[in-house]
Simulated assay, not measured.
Amino acid sequence: MTNTVTDFSVAPVETEAANDQPETEYMNTLWSQQYGYYKTIPELRAVIDAKARWTIGKGFETDPQTKFILDSIIGFGKDTFNTILENLIRTMNIGGDSFAEIIRDKDDNFVNLKPIDPGTIKIIVNRKGLIKRYEQTTKTKETSITTEFTKESIFHLSRNRTADEVHGISLIDSSTTGLGLVDIILARNEAMADMRQLMHRHVKPIIKWQLDTDDTKKIAEFKAKADQATNKGENIFIPLGAVEHEVVSVPTNATLNPLPWIQQLNQYFFQAAGVPQIIVGGSQEITEATAKILYLAFQQTIEEDQLYIEEQLDIQVGLKIELEFPASLENELLSDQKKAETTQAATPEDTTVQGVELNGSNTEV
């Protein structure tokens, strides 16, 4: 029997870790495709930019000496330390890993941090899975030049590295399975394309022309004339009885309305991405209390990312900073809770109503 319906299943996946060789290398060969999704899909770009923007928050706090050093960091020449970190966080979410060259002077003083295209970097690990070095290949296909970097000269961020894998996991997809937000993105854009075509056909419906000739030349001439008139919005003049036409339309309720499906995919997309729609300016039919809970939940995720960045800067570059969260609602939520507690009944008198009987005596209800 063919075309049978099979149950959904998930294939097992092995970690991309060091194998039984002196060296194992990993390179993100999907970077160009992942970056293409980021550049093309606006809602994906909004989510990733929001994650990077909120992780940087209001900037960083540190001691005066470290601040003096970081204020002189220029990246590719026009960067600040904040924009460099935001760039690396954005890149990490797109491809799973981000890299920057740690540049030091002859006295081994940290002087700059320059982001690198992750699609050109190979991670080289030894048999035990420990990073030995990094290698960068040129982008030109004519000549391939490899530049080696020690592990101490590369600042490396990995998103959600799992088990013994030597790389992070892209927010867009998994480098192993190729699945993730991609399926939701494709389904949503396919539905939007269908909706676009449906709306287009409502405004400019298809017309079925019936000509009184089977001469292909005359048919082609009339087709060109009719199409030109339609595209330019002009009138078309035809001899009486020479042509009959019929507007091809779809009856009401003859097809499914794609809008609920698009809205469901949209909601699922932001849920899977881990960013509430209110963060990127989306409007939903939610209460103020629900919005505060969503905001507070998102705050925990961002603070976890901030802690990761702070720890990596400390162990890889030797910089101690503290990233500030943009604005917290935690105190406001605690204040709302106290207000709710104070409005509760404290004594039996708070729940009784005193009235006056007709004879003038007081009574409690």
Rank of each mutant, 00 (worst) to 15 (best):
residue 20 D to F: 13
residue 252 T to M: 09
residue 250 V to H: 00
residue 224 A to N: 07
residue 13 V to P: 11
residue 349 E to S: 07
residue 23 E to P: 08
residue 315 I to R: 14
residue 50 A to L: 13
residue 350 D to C: 00
residue 40 T to E: 06
residue 247 V to M: 02
residue 308 Y to D: 09
residue 315 I to V: 11
residue 151 K to R: 15
residue 361 S to I: 06
residue 147 T to A: 05
residue 21 Q to E: 15
residue 25 E to Q: 14
residue 234 E to N: 06
residue 319 L to A: 06
residue 23 E to K: 07
residue 181 L to I: 00
residue 35 Y to A: 13
residue 23 E to N: 11
residue 247 V to I: 07
residue 17 A to C: 04
residue 287 T to G: 15
residue 16 E to A: 00
residue 315 I to Q: 15
residue 161 R to I: 11
residue 130 L to R: 11
residue 206 I to G: 12
residue 94 I to W: 06
residue 257 N to C: 08
residue 41 I to S: 06
residue 246 E to P: 03
residue 73 I to R: 00
residue 42 P to A: 03
residue 27 M to H: 04
residue 10 V to Q: 10
residue 200 H to I: 07
residue 284 Q to H: 04
residue 288 E to K: 07
residue 38 Y to T: 00
residue 276 P to V: 00
residue 321 I to C: 07
residue 260 P to E: 06
residue 210 Q to N: 11
residue 75 G to D: 07
residue 177 T to L: 15
residue 68 F to C: 13
residue 313 L to N: 03
residue 223 K to M: 02
residue 73 I to W: 04
residue 213 T to C: 04
residue 337 Q to Y: 12
residue 12 P to E: 11
residue 138 T to Y: 09
residue 44 L to N: 06
residue 233 G to T: 01
residue 276 P to C: 02
residue 186 L to V: 08
residue 204 K to Q: 15
residue 186 L to Y: 12
residue 333 L to T: 11
residue 353 V to F: 10
residue 348 P to N: 05
residue 130 L to F: 12
residue 360 G to H: 01
residue 152 E to Q: 14
residue 58 K to S: 04
residue 79 D to T: 03
residue 256 L to T: 05
residue 140 T to S: 15
residue 210 Q to T: 10
residue 16 E to Y: 03
residue 332 E to L: 08
residue 88 L to C: 10
residue 240 L to H: 05
residue 183 D to R: 02
residue 159 R to E: 12
residue 214 D to Q: 10
residue 255 T to H: 08
residue 80 T to C: 05
residue 300 Q to M: 09
residue 347 T to S: 14
residue 20 D to A: 08
residue 196 R to E: 15
residue 168 G to Q: 12
residue 336 D to L: 12
residue 155 F to I: 02
residue 90 R to V: 00
residue 197 Q to S: 09
residue 84 I to T: 15
residue 188 R to H: 05
residue 139 K to F: 12
residue 240 L to S: 08
residue 31 W to S: 05
residue 285 E to K: 00
residue 187 A to Q: 05
residue 7 D to K: 01
residue 98 S to R: 03
residue 183 D to Y: 11
residue 231 N to P: 03
residue 226 A to D: 08
residue 290 T to W: 02
residue 92 M to A: 12
residue 312 Q to G: 06
residue 84 I to C: 14
residue 12 P to S: 09
residue 246 E to C: 10
residue 61 E to M: 14
residue 125 V to T: 07
residue 38 Y to D: 02
residue 300 Q to G: 09
